[in-house]
């Protein structure tokens, strides 16, 4: 099954969904209701209802200051809302800590990459491994109890690193990686936790254009393996080619939902972007030219 066919198959699951804010989905994995977060007098997030379809790539877009990242932080337990509840796979996650959300299978990345620069790339990966007996204080000083888990995790980590072309850097400090490589590492590290759903906060921000394409490829591959992907992006053109469903936020509210092709034409969306700021054409379609891509990728390889 080629990537295109998969996309089509996934998109058909959303074919009957209404193109309106808060639309009901056939298999929602994440459902949020009445989520409100205020800072002082300002309401940063006010989301009435949102469902995220299982097994597809959903993009959460909106101009800067639309409350996307705040909403993201709320859903992942890194901020506390004034009101609101949300469920993941039918279980409530509202009020849970960031760690508990991750344990439930929702793992996130950060807009400003949080690769741990003073650990090596491999240590970063191993840190993410689940249920490591060696992470229990009582067992940690008895290496024979966790050596096997550690060896298994190392093997798994190297596989994932190879996939992200980071295996040659396994023993370098993560601080020595380029910005794009750190984004990749953060994504690879998230995969180490075997997540059900992965939430990426502006994965393309500040990344070398050649890597953007490879990043997007990785995101699609995750979806094809059955993972649910939700990612935040402020550039609406960048999401067009890979997302199955787009949710648009402006001034804290969801203003539109729909497949990428139709949502871009939505009046409310155009208004939201024009109203906030108009940074003209952010979509770099030249990246789709295979020749240009190959050149960029060759450059990135040499790093």
């Amino acid at each position: 099954m080629s990537v295109d066919e998969t996309t089509t198959a996934r998109s058909t699951s959303l074919a009957d969904v209404a193109h309106e804010p808060g639309a009901a989905k056939p298999d929602p994995i994440l459902v949020a209701d009445h989520v409100v977060r205020r800072f002082g007098g300002m309401t940063a997030v006010d989301v009435d209802h949102l469902e995220v379809q299982e097994g597809v790539i959903t993009a959460l877009i909106g101009p800067n200051g639309a409350g996307k990242t705040t909403f993201f932080n709320l859903l992942t337990g890194f901020d506390t809302p004034n009101t609101g509840e949300w469920t993941f796979q039918g279980r409530s996650l509202s009020g849970k800590s960031g760690a508990a959300v991750a344990k439930a299978g929702v793992v996130r990345t950060f807009q400003l990459t949080k690769a741990l620069g003073r650990l090596t790339v491999l240590q970063n990966m191993l840190l993410a491994s689940r249920d490591n007996p060696g992470e229990n204080l009582w067992l940690s000083w008895l290496p024979f109890l966790w050596k096997k888990h550690e060896a298994d995790s190392t093997e798994k980590a190297m596989e994932i690193l190879a996939r992200f072309k980071l295996d040659t850097k396994a023993n370098d400090y993560a601080g020595s990686l380029s910005g794009g490589q750190r984004k990749l590492l953060e994504m690879a590290r998230a995969l180490m936790t075997d997540p059900t759903m992965i939430m990426l906060d502006e994965p393309m921000a500040g990344v070398n254009p050649a890597l953007v394409q490879s990043l997007l490829g990785h995101v699609q591959a995750l979806r094809d393996e059955g993972m649910t992907v939700l990612f935040v992006e402020h550039d609406m053109h960048a999401v067009r080619h890979i997302s199955d469903w787009v949710v648009v936020m402006a001034e804290g509210r969801i203003v539109a939902e729909g497949p990428p092709s139709s949502v871009m034409k939505d009046e409310a969306v155009v208004d939201a972007y024009l109203g906030a700021h108009h940074d003209t054409d952010l979509g770099d379609d030249s990246l789709l030219d295979p020749a240009v891509l190959a050149r960029y990728e060759a450059e990135e390889e040499e790093r």
Partner: peptide, 8 residues
């Protein structure tokens, strides 16, 4: 940061 605050 503040998320754990609500824990029972």
């Amino acid at each position: 940061m503040t998320a754990d605050r609500l824990d029972l």
